[in-house]
């Protein structure tokens, strides 16, 4: 059984890894690349905890096969901050107490970043539908929605 050699760019870094043909991208990121920010909450694309962006598209990495990453550019939650400077979304999640247990937080941040990249000034409803693929069982979403609103404002003002 031969493993597949994948070359891609993750969070700006050139990365090579070996994976099985049937391995999910989530498992490869976590087990082969060592990036454990994306979490497996369901394995069926229903919770969004494994959200990443591949070639500009937001997706659940549990529903992608790892070999598909060859030649792509991927960003994960680990790439959201620049050095010590947190992304405004991260800062607003912190200041707005938009996380409790924190296990869904990486997925929310990645999805919210994709949402704001596409729609820099979303309404509350657009945020709620835009993040409907990410489950949070702790917060009731109130503070998450507010944090995304505040972050959008911060980004738009800067």
């Amino acid at each position: 059984m031969s493993r597949v050699h994948v070359t891609c760019t993750i969070n700006g870094d050139p990365i090579e890894f070996l994976c099985d043909g049937g391995q999910t991208l989530l498992d490869a990121l976590r087990d082969e690349v060592g990036l454990t920010g994306a979490k497996e909450g369901c394995g069926t694309g229903d919770c969004g905890a494994c959200s990443i962006v591949m070639d500009g598209r937001l997706l659940c990495s549990c529903l992608a096969l790892a070999p598909e990453a060859d030649g792509t550019t991927i960003s994960t939650v680990e790439g959201l901050a620049s050095g010590d400077d947190l992304h405004p979304l991260q800062q607003c999640f912190l200041e707005g107490a938009a996380l409790q247990c924190g296990v869904c937080t990486p997925g929310f941040l990645v999805a919210a970043k994709a949402l704001l990249d596409r729609n820099p000034d979303p309404t509350e409803t657009e945020i709620r539908y835009g993040l409907a693929g990410n489950l949070c069982r702790c917060t009731g979403y109130d503070k998450i929605v507010r944090a995304v609103q505040t972050a959008a404002q911060t980004i738009n003002e800067s």
């Binding site: 994306a38 959201l80 947190l86």
Partner: peptide, 17 residues
Amino acid sequence: VRHDGVEKVTGRARFAA
């Protein structure tokens, strides 16, 4: 801001898995 917050928004917090 919670003390464990930065680790949790940067994906570095270690959950069991």
